[in-house]
Design a protein around this nucleic acid. Structure first.
Lengths: 159, 159
DNA sequence: TTGATAACTGTTATGGTATAACATATCAAT
DNA sequence: ATTGATATGTTATACCATAACAGTTATCAA
């Protein structure tokens, strides 16, 4: 729930950290953080919000890194698969992971007014859902949890 | 996780019950279960699976109930808003509610192999996520929880 | 180095999902 | 009967996503 706002310097750090973490992880795992993949991760970290694939593609196009949808979707697929970004189903959009490196099953708080998104911990698999699945013989591989509502800022504006 | 299969008679009952429940609820709440809305609910109950809006629209078109996308989307919006159906974000699809009338925040078990969907109880709002939201000052209005994995049937086939 | 293999990129084409906007019709209550 | 709210019909368009195939680059073993 931390807002980046105008803290430019810290934000620069957080972008660098995110990219470096991805770099290290990829080197370790024998994955290739190619220019386009790296740039898409940077974009997501810079913007610090959920972005549509086409919005990202527009930026890539301006920078000469690709102009067709698959370029963006492939980079995003890579980032999501390796935990550097998450897909927000409700928004058909993507966001940089707030806790790169950690193995986690995130939940998201999505503001219906300003579309801001916060990453929160989730334990869907462990709770009542996991129990229901086990009873039913359903084998859960992954979960996603998204909550819609009002962020603190938009909440105040209404009140 | 119950399968409807060939139990035609019981299934007929379950469709009727679903429609009747919606009927009663609408009468009570001053809502209008118009022919198209009623028919879309019937279709979802009959098929007992997640269906895309365009798939539903095809049926409506054959029956002379409408031919353009908004017809289907409006009916679905009505059904979802009033709890007679749920939207499955992961599949961009819709399914009849398995527990009409009851106030509930459902979770879904989605088979990645056969796309079957089961409705399960969820308590996302009450668990760790709710706590995190409260701490952050985020006001949750609704949640959705979807688990991807293998249903019992597909699990067996793999094994 | 070279050749084989796997991974990645570029591009075209297409398919699937969803909604804005506006005109018309119907309903429900006075 | 009139009015205001709700629902429908329709056109047009926007947005989201991927299949398929050709070409390129990285990696590694021989």
């Amino acid at each position: 729930m931390t807002t980046i706002g105008f803290e430019t310097h810290n934000h620069r750090d957080c972008i660098d950290k995110g990219v470096q973490a991805a770099d290290a992880f990829c080197k370790d795992a024998g994955l290739r953080l190619t220019p386009t993949r790296r740039r898409v991760l940077e974009i997501l970290l810079e913007q610090h919000r959920a972005m549509g694939a086409y919005e990202i593609l527009d930026i890539l196009r301006d920078e000469g890194l690709g102009s067709q949808p698959p370029v963006a979707y492939r980079a995003l697929e890579f980032l999501v698969q390796n935990g550097f970004a998450h897909r927000i189903e409700r928004l058909n959009a993507f966001i940089a992971c707030a806790h790169p490196g950690q193995d986690h099953a995130p939940a998201f708080l999505i503001c219906r007014s300003c579309d801001s998104v916060a990453e929160a911990p989730s334990e869907a698999k462990k709770g009542r859902l996991g129990k229901a699945a086990r009873t039913a013989g359903f084998h859960i591989e992954s979960t996603f949890v998204e909550a819609i509502g009002l962020c603190p800022k938009c909440n105040d504006e209404v009140a």
